[in-house]
Amino acid sequence: TRVETATETAWISLVTALHLVLGLSAVLGLLLLRWQFPAHYRRLRHALW
């Protein structure tokens, strides 16, 4: 049971790290898009909202 718990903890930390990385890359990508294509971003936002 001790090994299982350790594996579970490792998986949880791995998944958390993955989610953090994905979230950060998504935010960075959005910022980059907004910085590179302001007109396109505004049009996209206008279409979405």
Rank of each mutant, 00 (worst) to 15 (best):
Q36R: 15
T7V: 08
Y41G: 04
Y41N: 05
R34H: 02
R34E: 01
S13A: 15
A6M: 11
L33G: 02
A6F: 05
P38N: 07
V3C: 01
T16W: 07
Q36G: 11
T16E: 04
A17I: 09
T7K: 09
T1H: 09
R43S: 09
R2D: 13
V3H: 00
A6N: 11
L32M: 15
S25L: 12
L14V: 10
A17Y: 04
R45V: 09
H40G: 10
P38H: 07
A6I: 03
L28P: 03
G29P: 02
L33P: 02
L33K: 01
S13N: 08
E4R: 06
H46Q: 12
T9V: 11
V27C: 10
R43Y: 05
Y41M: 14
G23F: 15
L48W: 05
V27S: 08
W11Q: 04
S25W: 02
E4I: 07
A10M: 11
L32H: 02
E8C: 03
A39D: 13
L18I: 12
V15C: 08
A47V: 09
A26L: 14
T16D: 00
L33A: 07
L32A: 14
V15W: 06
L33Q: 06
T7R: 13
H40V: 08
V27F: 12
A39C: 06
S25Q: 03
T5I: 04
G29K: 00
W35S: 12
L14H: 03
V21L: 13
Q36I: 10
R42L: 08
E4L: 08
W35R: 15
R45W: 06
G29Y: 02
G29W: 03
L44H: 04
H19V: 15
A26G: 12
R2E: 13
A26R: 00
A10D: 08
H19S: 15
W11I: 10
V15N: 06
T16Q: 04
L33E: 01
L44C: 06
Y41E: 05
I12G: 08
W11T: 05
L48Y: 06
T9I: 12
W11M: 10
L20Q: 04
P38S: 10
A10V: 08
R2T: 13
R43T: 11
L28C: 13
A26V: 12
